[in-house]
Simulated scan of single mutants.
Amino acid sequence: MSSATFHFPASAMRELLSSLDPSATPFAALAALFWLRIVTPNNTNAGEQELTLALDFRKRMHAPLPTGYYGSAVHFTRARADLAAGLAAAAAAVDRHVAGAKEDELWAALEWLHARQQRGDEPFQMYGPELTCLALDHVPLYGAEFELGAPPARVASRVGGAHGEGLVVVLSAAEGGEARDVLVTLPVETTARVCRDEEVLRYGAKVVFGPKAAKEA
Results as ranks from 00 to 15, higher is better:
F209W: 14
V194P: 08
F6G: 09
H7V: 12
L87K: 06
W107G: 01
V94C: 08
G120S: 01
P187G: 00
R14N: 08
T67M: 11
L87Y: 11
Y142E: 01
S72K: 10
V98I: 06
L134W: 03
M1N: 14
L186E: 12
A162T: 15
S157L: 15
L30N: 07
F6L: 15
S3D: 13
A192H: 12
M1Q: 12
Y142S: 00
T77F: 02
D181E: 05
W112F: 14
T185L: 04
G71C: 06
T77W: 04
P129L: 08
H62S: 14
P41V: 03
V170I: 01
M61V: 04
V39E: 15
T5W: 02
E111C: 05
A79S: 07
V170S: 10
A88R: 05
V94E: 08
T190F: 07
G164P: 01
F57I: 02
M1K: 08
A29R: 01
M61G: 04
T25K: 12
Y69R: 11
A54Y: 09
G100H: 06
E189Q: 09
A4E: 01
P129C: 05
G143K: 02
A29Y: 03
E122H: 09
H138T: 09
M61D: 02
Y203C: 09
G161N: 05
G210S: 10
R154A: 03
D104S: 14
A174L: 07
E48N: 10
P123W: 10
E178W: 11
E189G: 08
H75M: 13
A156D: 12
A153Q: 15
M61Q: 08
L136S: 08
G204I: 00
A92M: 07
A162S: 11
A93W: 10
A32Q: 04
I38K: 07
P22W: 02
A108S: 13
P22Y: 01
L171S: 01
A115R: 14
R78S: 15
Y142A: 00
R193V: 07
P41W: 06
Y69N: 12
A214E: 07
N43Q: 08
A29H: 04
D137N: 00
G143F: 07
V208C: 06
L33N: 14
S19G: 11
G128I: 00
D104R: 12
E50R: 09
P140T: 06
A93R: 09
R78Q: 15
G204V: 03
D137R: 00
V74I: 10
C195E: 15
M1V: 13
D21Y: 12
G210F: 05
V159I: 13
L148T: 13
A54P: 12
E50Q: 08
A46M: 02
E178N: 11
C195D: 15
L87P: 02
P140D: 04
A54D: 14
